[in-house]
Design a protein around this nucleic acid. Structure first.
Lengths: 201, 201
DNA sequence: GACTTTAACGAACGATCGTTCTATAACACG
DNA sequence: CGTGTTATAGAACGATCGTTCGTTAAAGTC
């Protein structure tokens, strides 16, 4: 890895954890230069524009998410165990990677939902990719017979994302120590509902 | 209402819908002055500091939430119908009031979760108040016999907030036209789970 | 080790930020 | 109507914003 790539990565590391705290939109080149002990112009040269830097942070976030959440879960047997592992990794990934201030993309989703442009597009892409991944895992669980054949996959994914967001808000804003447990309770109740055969009425 | 209060309210109206789009943290006095056809200093005098303006926006948001979501629901019979009405109002309140860019407080919760200070405190206050309100409604539903006596109220509230957040993200970022329906499906399954008597095992 | 490429710096740009001050205009009240 | 009060404007402040430019130092290549 050349010198360029090396410092670019170092900048991204710092930008990543900074964005986690203050949001991707509030990133500033001056502050970032100070934190990385560089000049503004020197740092700037690596990205060409602030927006490109922000996009790089979002892409970095996606990559780390894949490595910290999705990939380890693939070691679990397909179906429900894998889905369960994925959720567990997801709920805790902000601790695993250097994310002192919570998931960058989730925060960006709330920040840019009404500001068209490349940043919003990138966030959207990430959210769709995540939902696809979750959807695949759910579909596998159906195929394995862990969930009912008529399971509404999108609905299940929808509710799982809700569980994640509720957990993050409870933890981060309300300091609720039970958030993780509540998430698991919600999830298990969810899959139990979709696991039992439909009742005759 | 004196002239002062009048323009102050006009400023808040504009700040409110602007913050809805770009976030409370990104509010700028210059832009706001332009939008309200005032001078920066004239506008500034009404609040004394930018932070005070932001706090005022958050308080305004709480007030409108109460009037658009909670108060109308109180007309419904207590218990499940009231809870159901509250969720319905909640899911659509960003359309009812002038909130082109989604709930200000929910966005602020993601923005300030790692930035201590009066703004975070105010957001926290709002979230707690909301959870209390929801909790009360759930408790009423238990008292009315709509839900099981051993219902974990906090758990139910936790999951309802998740449904809300999933709905907003699906609507705003993914343009999912089914988000509202999915929210209702999730909610009804939730209350059905807590309504039936516990199974003997 | 000489040469080329590239990475980093420092200074400066215009724009905007939040804030302060002073002066003038509009209002409220007797 | 006149007078005291309050609301608004305008100019200016230092700070920071993102970005550009020319130059120097370092890294990569033969």
């Amino acid at each position: 890895m050349g010198k360029g790539e090396q410092t670019r990565q170092a900048i991204l590391d710092e930008a990543f954890s900074l964005a986690s705290c203050i949001g991707v939109g509030a990133l500033s080149i001056g502050v970032l230069a100070e934190r990385t002990h560089m000049s503004k112009s020197g740092l700037f040269a690596h990205f060409g524009s602030k927006e490109e830097l922000q996009l790089a942070v979002l892409r970095e976030s996606q990559m780390r998410f894949g490595e910290a959440v999705v990939r380890p879960a693939l070691r679990e047997p397909r179906g429900l165990p894998r889905l369960r592992a994925m959720l567990a990794n997801w709920l805790d990934w902000t601790r695993a990677v250097n994310l002192p201030g919570g998931c960058v993309i989730n925060a960006a989703a709330a920040e840019f939902d009404d500001q068209p442009g490349p940043l919003r597009d990138e966030v959207r892409k990430a959210l769709i990719a995540l939902r696809d991944t979750l959807g695949e895992a759910v579909a596998r669980a159906v195929a394995e017979g862990h969930l009912r054949p008529d399971t509404d996959i999108e609905q299940l994914v929808f509710e799982i994302t809700g569980i994640y967001q509720a957990t993050q808000q409870s933890r981060r804003m309300l300091n609720d120590p039970d958030a993780g447990r509540r998430a698991i309770v919600a999830f298990e109740r969810l899959v139990r509902d979709y696991a039992v055969p439909p009742e005759k009425e």
